[in-house]
Amino acid sequence: METILFYVLAVVTLISAACVVFLRRPLHNVLFMILTMIGLATLFILLHAEFLAMVQIIVYAGAVMVLFLFVIMLLNLEEISLPKEPRPLRWGFGVILALALVVVLFPIFSHFTPSVMGKAAPATGNVSNIELIGTELFTTYLLPFEIASILLLAAIIGTVVIGRKLKN
């Protein structure tokens, strides 16, 4: 059951990720990106990371992708001429190059045979995922947590300053 679920989710995620990269219209890219995020969130649930799955849906599918949509609507990219994409020949060259990169970058492919390798995941305990993350986050990783909030504050201020309309 888990195996079937994994393969279905993996195929959906990969196909929608390919649509994000290869479709021409930015609006379609964003919608398929949302599908990719939801696929990843379900994969997180499959990995018993329920808290991260919820965060993934709320932050990525909810906030980040709405931000993308908002900017695309704001710039009205559908009507302004879409940027010229490279010729098919160059596309083919690029895809071949990327495949070569996959083989070089990720040694995992050179010895991957499904259903033979590896072992199953260890059983999870009774403690809930959220409790574990909360305990770690507010004890061991308290300083990085606070620094992250400062980073977010800096990003907010920076965004407002950059996005402000200049008067002259």
Partner: peptide, 11 residues
């Protein structure tokens, strides 16, 4: 489903 499956998907 092994760790390798997820790593391949991620790659």
């Amino acid at each position: 489903v092994t760790l390798e499956h997820y790593l391949v998907l991620s790659a």
